[in-house]
């Protein structure tokens, strides 16, 4: 090995490296690398309960077609469904499959097994599990929203989230841009009277308007959960496998819950405060080759608490 050649090599590399124009690095520094998403997921609570050390969340939105009437067909009582409708399940599984792994070597690669299915008209909410990981999918005629949380072993608790926008999954005449925006703000979480953990999240679909998703875990003896909204309307939740889930059009919060068990029905307060402010969002840049879209949404000011801190999540 020639020392002269090695010395020349070092010199040649240094010279070439010095030819990199400063504005090139400036361009790189100016890029916003953050997928602007923040959403505290109820799975964080679940993860903490199960001893998980790290949790990540990915939210995926797939817009499958043009808009239709805002959540038409919704009902306060869910339709019986032991398993997800095939179309909804296919869309949800496709969204889950297209998501990047949250952690290297994580077990969040599927298959995802549905554990609770809530059907109201043409809309289906499915809670999926894959080992310790949990995903919630909200599938409608024109969109699919998936929220995926993963856990990994580690020494400390860490959280992160990112937004993944899936492009149109096929079919001529479908326009993903026509209904592709959503915003979410978490209303808060609570545990009370047989409800181990519950989260209320407010979403806003560009074409369908606002909706509120409530999900959580319940004690094994609980056979039914009915949520009483701030406007007095009672919405029966779907309960299965220790989970309950319900949703409704609009942004009403939950004030109390009627919990059914073998001993009867108990009404428990579920005090949630409304979001600090209405979410606002900005346009998202198209997904990069890594499929992560960068969004220009604003973040609701932090309240400092982990149980009631609202956040904004925009994808479009």
């Amino acid at each position: 090995m020639s020392l002269d050649l090695e010395a020349e090599l070092t010199k040649a590399f240094a010279a070439r490296a010095s030819a990199v124009p400063p504005d090139a690095a400036a361009r790189l520094r100016a890029v916003d690398y953050h997928p602007r998403t923040r959403r505290v997921s109820p799975r964080f609570t679940v993860g903490a309960l199960t001893g998980a050390a790290a949790v990540g969340t990915v939210i995926s939105v797939a817009v499958l077609g043009s808009a239709q009437a805002a959540f038409a067909g919704w009902s306060a009582t869910p339709m019986p469904a032991a398993s997800p409708p095939a179309a909804a399940n296919a869309n949800c599984q496709a969204s889950l499959a297209s998501m990047p792994a949250l952690f290297s070597g994580s077990n969040d690669t599927g298959p995802w097994a549905p554990v609770a299915t809530d059907v109201r008209g043409p809309y289906t909410v499915v809670i999926y599990q894959d080992n310790g990981d949990v995903a919630t999918c909200f599938a409608g005629p024109s969109f699919t929203v998936v929220n995926h949380s993963a856990t990994s072993d580690g020494g400390s608790t860490r959280q992160f989230s990112s937004t993944v926008q899936r492009s149109n999954v096929g079919g001529s005449g479908q326009n993903p841009a026509s209904g592709g925006g959503f915003t979410s703000v978490e209303g808060g979480r609570v545990a009370s009277g047989g409800v181990q953990a519950m989260s209320v999240e407010h979403f806003f679909m560009t074409n369908d308007g606002p909706y509120t998703l409530v999900e959580g875990q319940i004690d094994s003896g609980i056979t039914g959960v009915t949520l009483v909204r701030s406007d007095g309307v009672a919405v029966e939740a779907t309960t299965a496998a220790g989970w309950f889930v319900a949703w409704w059009p609009g942004d009403q919060n939950v004030t109390s819950g009627q919990i059914t068990s073998a001993s009867g029905v108990t009404t428990v307060p579920l005090p949630f405060s409304p979001p600090a402010s209405a979410p606002s969002g900005g346009p998202c840049t198209p997904p990069t080759t890594s499929t992560v879209g960068s969004c220009g949404g604003s973040t609701v000011p932090q309240t400092g608490g982990s149980s009631s801190s609202p956040s904004t999540n925009v994808a479009g």
């Binding site: 361009r27 790189l28 890029v31 690398y33 790290a54 990540g56 952690f103 860490r158 959280q159 992160f160």
Partner: peptide
């Protein structure tokens, strides 16, 4: 190509930055 490479690398790192 180098700019593209660094940008893609930083995107990936950003996704995993908490770790």
């Amino acid at each position: 190509g180098a700019e593209d490479l660094v940008q893609e690398s930083l995107f990936r790192i950003a996704r995993r930055w908490p770790r």
